[in-house]
Computed example of a mutant assay.
Amino acid sequence: MDKEKVLGLLDQLKPILAGKAESIGAETAKQLTATLDQTRAEVVQGEGMALGISLQGLVQAVSNASLPGTELRFTDEEKPVWEELKSLTDKERTDIFRGVHLF
């Protein structure tokens, strides 16, 4: 996984999530931003499978906040950042599972 690409996406996602405070509530926005910050720190320090595992927690938290009945929605301009981050995480998860099955 390309760390620089992931870090760039996380850096782009942070102001998007922070800007959602009015629609999702300040506390939820603060929690998501804190999770993003923690994930970013883990990505900076991590390698290999650890990167994918770190990203999975963030993707799950944001996904939960954007389930039907919740208020987190991404605009057409914001969606590409979120979709690319999800896609990288899904690919990494698939690669991890493929590696586990080889043993």
Rank of each mutant, 00 (worst) to 15 (best):
A21E: 11
A21G: 15
A21Q: 13
S23V: 11
S23T: 15
G25H: 01
A26V: 15
A26L: 07
E27S: 13
E27H: 14
E27Q: 15
T28C: 06
T28N: 11
A29F: 11
A29R: 07
A29I: 12
A29G: 09
K30D: 13
K30L: 10
K30Y: 07
Q31E: 12
Q31Y: 11
L32K: 04
L32M: 10
L32V: 03
L32A: 01
L32F: 02
T33A: 02
T35C: 05
T35P: 04
T35Q: 02
L36N: 09
Q38T: 14
Q38M: 14
Q38F: 09
T39I: 11
T39W: 09
T39R: 12
R40K: 08
A41N: 03
A41P: 13
A41R: 12
A41F: 15
E42P: 06
E42H: 07
V43R: 00
V44I: 13
V44M: 07
V44L: 03
Q45N: 06
G46E: 08
G46T: 11
G46S: 12
G46Y: 14
E47Q: 12
E47Y: 06
E47W: 14
G48D: 05
M49S: 03
M49P: 07
M49H: 14
M49T: 15
A50C: 10
A50I: 12
A50K: 15
A50E: 12
L51D: 14
L51A: 13
G52A: 04
G52Y: 07
G52R: 06
G52H: 09
I53C: 06
I53V: 10
I53E: 05
I53P: 07
S54N: 05
S54F: 09
L55A: 05
L55G: 04
L55D: 07
L55T: 01
L55K: 01
Q56W: 14
G57H: 13
G57R: 03
G57F: 05
G57T: 05
G57S: 03
G57V: 10
L58R: 09
V59G: 02
V59M: 02
V59K: 04
Q60S: 09
A61S: 09
A61M: 03
A61L: 02
A61T: 05
N64T: 08
N64C: 02
N64Q: 00
A65Q: 02
A65C: 07
A65K: 06
A65N: 06
S66I: 08
S66G: 03
S66N: 09
L67W: 06
P68F: 01
P68M: 08
P68E: 01
G69N: 07
T70V: 04
T70C: 03
T70P: 06
E71V: 04
E71H: 08
E71F: 14
E71T: 01
R73G: 06
R73W: 08
R73V: 10
F74L: 00
F74A: 00
F74V: 00
T75P: 07
T75C: 04
D76W: 11
D76H: 12
E77H: 04
E78T: 00
E78V: 00
P80V: 01
V81E: 04
V81L: 08
V81Q: 07
W82N: 00
W82I: 00
W82H: 00
E84S: 04
E84R: 08
E84I: 06
E84H: 10
L85Q: 01
